[in-house]
Design a protein around this nucleic acid. Structure first.
Lengths: 145, 145
DNA sequence: ATAATAAAGGATAGTTTTGCCCTTATTTAT
DNA sequence: ATAAATAAGGGCAAAACTATCCTTTATTAT
């Protein structure tokens, strides 16, 4: 569904939103272990999400690390998908046809239409905070510890 | 959603099912132009679908080409996805977590569950014939000619 | 000030996917 | 039989994606 990079981006962001805060930032080592992702690759992704997209906040030096502001936690999950450059996934024709549209639909267009809508709703109506919160509610998990 | 290879596989198969027959086989050149795909790459894919998976039939030599038997047209679209090795797409955790399951769901698991079901239904309940047929019914298209 | 810590950034390597070319094998038509 | 047509198949190149390593910069604590 998503690339590895986007999967790591989603996992890392949700994990940081849940476990971190401005006064308890999380280091890249902890994050990578927790979400089971390659350390340096994940670092690059977090860099992108903080430098270019301001979804994640970061501070260097001792006691530095990553965290999300309360404002950032209110962003919809689709922001992360967008930041990773995969927003077209939610628009693209299932068969990859450029010309596919409402007026010139591919054979799967109609069938897929309601599914696409639900996908879009799921990603744009739910915030990072909401997905992070679910982890705390007992059963739901995201990490290794 | 799918890889390029699978997109081409789906487009080519649906196109062949619609335009070809045992007595009017389609050549790789026509197919590639019609579905707007790279010729040789598409040839490899058709080879895979015919040699290993018996979804497409092929004959060499003059008047040779590709076609689908009536039996093959009755196969569900999921057969093509499976043949291309992407069947896990319909099972995999959205966040790519190996441990994600009903009893240990990731934060997106519950939200995504009904969507996954609809995707699975769409691909396993509709046949190649049905998708090919829709093309003929006026509006719906798949090709460049 | 200095040293230690942790992210930022650059370079590069490995892997997979996508795409192309050329030769070979098979079938048909003459 | 021979030639022509057409898929099969091998090899390789380009691009994208994934991953690692090392150096630099910023921050904090002493």
């Amino acid at each position: 569904m998503f690339t590895k990079a986007t999967e790591y981006a989603l996992r890392a962001t949700i994990y940081i939103a849940q476990k971190g805060s401005e006064v308890a930032k999380l280091g890249i080592d902890e994050i990578a272990v927790a979400i089971d992702s390659p350390r340096s690759f994940t670092a690059k992704i977090l860099q992108l999400l903080s430098r270019d997209n301001h979804i994640i906040s970061s501070v260097r030096g001792p006691n530095g690390g990553f965290y999300l502001t309360e404002k950032a936690k209110s962003l919809p999950i689709s922001c992360i998908i967008q930041a990773m450059g995969e927003e077209e996934m939610l628009e693209k024709c299932v068969l990859g046809l450029k010309q596919c549209s409402e007026t010139q639909p591919c054979p799967m267009h109609l069938q897929f239409k309601p599914i696409r809508k639900q996908l879009k709703d799921m990603f744009s109506n739910k915030t990072i905070r909401e997905f992070a919160a679910e982890i705390k509610d007992g059963v739901i998990f995201i990490c290794n510890r």
